[in-house]
Computed example of a mutant assay.
Amino acid sequence: MTTQHQPGTADHIADVQRADPELGGLVWRHSTFSQGSDQTCRDVAFTPGQVVVRDSKDPEGPVLRFTAREWEVFLLGVRNNEFDLPLRRTPRP
């Protein structure tokens, strides 16, 4: 059975379990907005005090590691449109 996720809701992230010996079998999550052939998805996993990001096309490749606080600050910037592409930037009301 396939679960449909409603875009823009808390359940919009899909969990992906992959074997990863170096990272101890973490549960990797990716946005359901990245489905299809565009192959733009990044996977995110949460460990105690850390957030790990990898390229979904290269699950055995390098990862980026952030503290929980670094990740929180980054997400605040995303929600505030601070990382929008320059041509798409829309001021917030």
Rank of each mutant, 00 (worst) to 15 (best):
L85R: 10
T9H: 01
A19G: 08
A45H: 10
A10I: 00
H30K: 09
P62M: 07
D20E: 05
V27Q: 02
R69P: 01
D84A: 11
T40P: 05
V73R: 05
A19W: 08
A68M: 14
N81R: 06
G61Y: 15
F83T: 05
L75I: 02
R29S: 06
E70I: 04
V73T: 08
L87F: 04
G77Q: 11
V73D: 11
Q35C: 02
D15G: 10
W28L: 12
A10M: 03
R92L: 13
D15Q: 07
Q50V: 11
T2I: 05
T2L: 01
E22S: 10
Q35H: 02
R54T: 11
R88C: 08
F46C: 07
Q35A: 08
P48D: 06
A68T: 14
F33G: 00
G36I: 04
G24F: 06
K57A: 13
G24L: 06
G61F: 14
A68G: 06
L87W: 07
M1R: 05
V73M: 08
W71Q: 10
F74K: 01
Q50H: 15
V16R: 04
S37R: 12
G61P: 14
V52G: 05
D11K: 00
P93T: 13
P91E: 13
H30L: 13
T9Q: 01
L76R: 07
W28I: 13
D43L: 11
D84Y: 01
R79S: 12
I13G: 00
R89L: 06
V53D: 15
W28F: 03
P21C: 09
T2W: 00
S31K: 04
F83K: 08
F46S: 15
S34Q: 05
L85P: 08
N80P: 02
L26V: 13
R65S: 11
V53T: 14
V63W: 12
T9M: 01
R89D: 12
R54C: 10
V51G: 13
W28K: 03
R79V: 05
T47F: 15
